[in-house]
Amino acid sequence: MKLFKRQNNVLPGFGITLGFTIFYLSAIVLIPLSALVFRTMGLTWGEFISTVTAPRVMASYKVTFGAAIIAAGINAIFGVLVAWVLVRYRFPGRKIVDALVDLPFALPTAVAGITLATIYSSNGWVGRYLEPFGIKVAFTPLGITLAMTFIGLPFVVRTVQPVIEEIEVELEEAAACLGASRWQTLSRVIFPVLLPSILTGFALSFARGVGEYGSIIFIAGNMPMVSEITPLLIITKLEQFDYRGATAIACVMLLTSFLMLMVVNLLQKWSRRYAE
């Protein structure tokens, strides 16, 4: 405790606020999450491996991670475009579009799910125009990608937007004075500054897509081996009272999100390199 008291700070309430913080954090987050880890450790290594590498589980990883990567890629491209347009250009309705970008954060996932499934079903508003081209979105892996794109978009826009806002005009002026064309300035000066934030947005969007459940199950079709995502598989196992299976797969997903968290932290350190 001595370590804490050494600070020369006159503000009161440090001990009690930090104490409550650690208590509440442990009760709500840390102890429940450690239950998952301890439960998994109850399995033998062989059991664990055979559960998390069963063909149906492997197929679900493929669908989940594959769709999440593609969705994050789409978001990285269009998210940067939207962020750029919102910061740099003036057009009517800009403020409304800016506010709407956060819609996927605010709209409950179940609402997004049933709506996307309805719009993109074969007789839906958009689905009926895709049908003649042989493109089926609803109830296929394509639908999963679509739902993940929807929920992941704000992550890219909101990470890249502040970085574009902070780019100093002098940087572009200098490039132009030295004879760079606009394209050269964009690709050699602006893009390298934006890159860390684009990658951070990509990683956040990917991580959200991998864990997402509500908006996907309505549009996915949920066919084992074809369009079944990993979170759904966990719920299916739980409903069959296969607690061990559910726990083991959940543990793999938890490790994946820790890994993503570390990647994001590293990327943010990298992006601060420019700020200093």
Binding site: I31, P32, L33, A35, L36, R39, T109, A207, V210, G211, E212, Y213, G214, P231, L232, I234, I235, L238, Y243, A246, T247, A250, M253, L254, S257, F258, M260, L261
Partner: peptide, 15 residues
């Protein structure tokens, strides 16, 4: 924020 919602529910079932 980085844990799947499904896992957020599962941990309470496990306890």
């Amino acid at each position: 924020f980085s844990v799947s919602p499904v896992i957020s529910g599962l941990i309470y079932v496990l306890i």
